[in-house]
Amino acid sequence: MTHSPSSSSHDGAQLLFFDALLFRVEKSFTFIAAFGIFFLMLLGVTQVVGRKLFDIPVYGYIDLVEQSTALFAFLGVAYCQRFGTHVRMELVVSHLSGRTLWVVEAIAIVFSIVIVSIFIPHSFDHFLRAWEYGDTTIDAEFPVWPSKLLVPIAFSVLWLRLVLQLAGFIRLSIRPDATPVAVTTVHDIETKARIEIEDAYVSDKNGASPSQRG
């Protein structure tokens, strides 16, 4: 979970500002992904009904579905990082605290930034090849470049999110007592259980959905 500062100190205010700004982008991207999923559902129904009842399958259905997976495979990647939803093993980090914890977290983020920095240009090259030399889907011959372009775009937003988190962890490494801003924190097993439960409760009371992890 991303923390918001509980004190009125100015410390971390800039981080908080960028966090909110980036979050807008991340959220809109994830919304596009969510609508992609909803569209996929409607498309599937249309396909089955059309084929079964009227013998009219959706033109290029398989190709269309295949290309649309790029929407929900990538666009939400930064949003997911912001909330710390990407899977990791917390066996070791959950036993750390204070400066040690923040330094280890910062190192893990540096590592992730380096990797994403390499993936951005090379996934862009993959798009560029499809754009320059041509690449089309198997049946309907839709161009493939749009879905390939989504990868470097989504990764660039992820890169920004990681840099912001690194700034947050470095700030905490320097001042371990400051209120955490723009970082994700570790959950021990009890907290994890509590989050699962809260999600399940909230779903009944307020209509938010339960987590489906596990």
Partner: peptide, 16 residues
């Protein structure tokens, strides 16, 4: 909410 949660879990699985 349901769609947003679905999208988040989906991207998590695709990422791994």
């Amino acid at each position: 909410d349901a769609l947003l949660e679905t999208a988040t879990l989906t991207v998590m699985i695709f990422s791994i």
